[in-house]
Design a protein around this nucleic acid. Structure first.
Lengths: 337, 337
DNA sequence: CCTGGCACTCTGTGTTCCCGAGTGCCAAGT
DNA sequence: ACTTGGCACTCGGGAACACAGAGTGCCAGG
């Protein structure tokens, strides 16, 4: 059905179209790639490819353009991820290593991805639910007010101010803090609720009310922040890539956390690249854009995802290489800090 | 030089141009506003206004368009800030009040501003340098590693991991924490360096090395984060306002923290609105855009600034009203939390 | 099954033309 | 002295049109 030459033609079409941004005709193909056959033959192949929906012509008697289906085949079978050069790798490593805290790691990652791919970068903060407790701190602020600080093993810090029902002295706070850290240290965040369930019972009766208040805020924090935090950058690259579809929709989508999360997609296993091409992706405003995403994490646990978003007409091999490389290095940095 | 009627004509031109986005001619002016004079008279006035640089015509025999100078005069003398309606105020208040921590306050403020003004919103985090210490926490993470957490009175939290030169037991940490909080509580961040200068001397000799390490990180945090944090949102509104100048430049400027900071401008006193029109602003990529900014803070101290950025052709009275209102409410929320 | 040739079909571009909005100026009116 | 109507002029932008060029599909011959 699709012999090797037809596939080669498709590959050539994708590559040329990506680099020239113009519909590509049979003659140009014969010239620029040495396929060893004449334009007429290529035309026949193109007719077959079009027949099966891999390419299309914008108007009669214009060159051909890959369809989403065509890109899909290209990504799955015709292209090879282009690895980063040694110099690039070192640059990535040193750039990321300069970060002092999680916020900065994430921020730098966004910049790096945007710059490497010349596209919009999207990075999700390491998931709260999949990480574990490193420390819980209760800081007295006023007589009846404390600040609850939760530090995870990924370096993420959540803080919340809690108003207490009564005045509580420092030593009682210290006691509660000790108990909490005792039972929560290293505890996976998803199992925090059951772990702390019996804490009030272990306290003297007069402290239970206070403990319950603090615990409820703690649990609330976990739940509310299940809504994962995502940042993006490099939108200036959108303006350069003259978008077929209005980029207003794209910008709107980017500002919708919910959409963004769904875009990065479900977990598909560590360092596994997910590519969503044009209409494959779940949000209608993003027809005409593709997403290349990967999971990252420390060790073998995927903590979150990152990726880039760009026009369907993008250089997939290079983009995929960059995303994969960045995902790996971020994982390393995270594990090392 | 500029009698009342000429000013009225200028005002009418600005208003019409803002609402229609088309050069406005003498006839249209006479029709839409009852200036009580004929188009011919208006033409004379327009000639005078053009002579003095308040308006210009894009091409010969087209209508007139306000120049930056024209907008400036309009803002300074011809317009009145449009206050928010009661309903809008209540909406702002409740929307902001729902935030649980500083990050969320800032994020919500950005959304709010963007939505109210249909422009790009820019919000600076409350300045570290102008706020004061609420609490310093030192959390042991491992034998030779602690996390330093700095909480300011504006709710901002900075954390940093510190590697210690030697193992330090919990009680020594607690001691240091006590001393730090004792002398830093309520201390303005800018005076932290001198305040902690003598802390090592007050410690037993064996702790001095550790204290010095921690203090140096603390000071470093203050300095590094002097680079203020700024977030923005509502870029989708840029696409709607068909920008004369390429919006690529605008997006680029927005992603440059440094530029953004300069855009919001210097302190001009609390709740004072700063308007930068087109070429008045310091970054060449933003010709054709105006910035409306205001300071906000709790009490009478300006902590940071916020504002919006949009095309020069914007509805200044409404925008200024929205920015001022939001700045006030954010200040209130901040003071109350 | 490949290839060269050929007729056909479009799009995009350049040209021309013309309409209309808007101006500047002038002379007359108040 | 200012306002007003009249008038000639200018220029941008849209419509109509023609045309070159790129690209295609098909066919007959190798």
């Amino acid at each position: 059905m699709l012999d090797d030459r037809k596939l080669a033609v498709l590959r050539a079409i994708v590559e040329d179209y990506v680099s020239t941004n113009e519909p590509v005709g049979s003659k140009a193909l014969a010239d620029r790639h040495n396929l060893g056959v004449s334009p007429a033959t290529i035309r026949n192949d193109m007719a077959a490819l079009e027949e099966q929906g891999y390419i299309a012509q914008p108007h009669t008697s214009a060159g051909r353009v890959p369809t989403d289906k065509g890109y899909r085949l290209f990504v799955d079978r015709l292209s090879q991820i282009k690895p980063m050069s040694g110099a690039e790798r070192r640059a990535i490593e040193t750039f990321l290593a300069g970060a002092v805290d999680l916020d900065e790691i994430v921020m730098r990652t966004v910049r790096l991805l945007a710059q490497l791919t010349r596209q919009v970068a999207v990075v999700q903060y390491p998931s709260l639910t999949r990480s574990s407790v490193r420390h819980v701190e209760i800081v007295p602020l006023a007589a009846r007010r404390v600040m609850l600080v939760l530090i995870t093993n990924t370096g993420r810090v959540e803080q919340r101010v809690v108003d207490l029902p009564e005045e509580v002295g420092d030593e009682r706070i210290a006691n509660l803090r000790g108990i909490l850290n005792g039972c929560l240290d290293g505890c996976g965040l998803s199992s925090v609720p059951e772990t702390v369930a019996d804490v009030p019972d272990r306290l003297p009766p007069e402290d239970r009310q206070v403990a319950a208040t603090i615990l409820s805020v703690l649990l609330e924090t976990l739940v509310e922040r299940h809504e994962e935090k995502i940042v993006f950058g490099g939108t200036a690259n959108l303006a350069a890539a003259d978008f077929s579809v209005g980029l207003r929709d794209v910008l709107e989508a980017l500002e919708e956390q919910v959409v963004l999360i769904r875009l990065l997609g479900e977990t598909h296993g560590m360092s596994e690249l997910t590519v969503r091409i044009g209409s494959e992706n779940p949000y209608s405003g993003l027809r005409g854009t593709s997403i290349v995403a990967a999971g990252y994490g420390s060790g073998d646990k995927e903590l979150a995802r990152l990726g880039v978003l760009g026009p369907t007409r993008m250089d997939y091999p290079v983009t995929m290489g960059a995303v994969r490389a960045v995902a790996r290095y971020v994982g390393q940095i995270l594990a090392g800090s």
